[in-house]
């Protein structure tokens, strides 16, 4: 499945792993924080409407 990368196999694989890893971490971190903030906002808005 993986094409023959010759003597540079490690180099190519590591750059792909590192880059894609960093991108995934960035997206995951953004989504996690986004979810948290969204939930918190709903909670605060909910409280505000109940108390007037």
């Amino acid at each position: 499945m993986i094409p023959d990368l010759g003597k540079y196999a490690d180099t190519v694989m590591w750059s792909y792993i590192v880059s894609i890893g960093l991108l995934v971490v960035l997206v995951a971190f953004s989504v996690m924080r986004g979810r948290k903030v969204r939930a918190e906002l709903e909670k605060v808005e909910d409280r505000m409407t109940r108390h007037g």
Binding site: D4, K7, V12
Partner: peptide
Amino acid sequence: QGSTVKIIYLH
């Protein structure tokens, strides 16, 4: 450059 040229797609 052999297969290292494939790094270009990310770099």
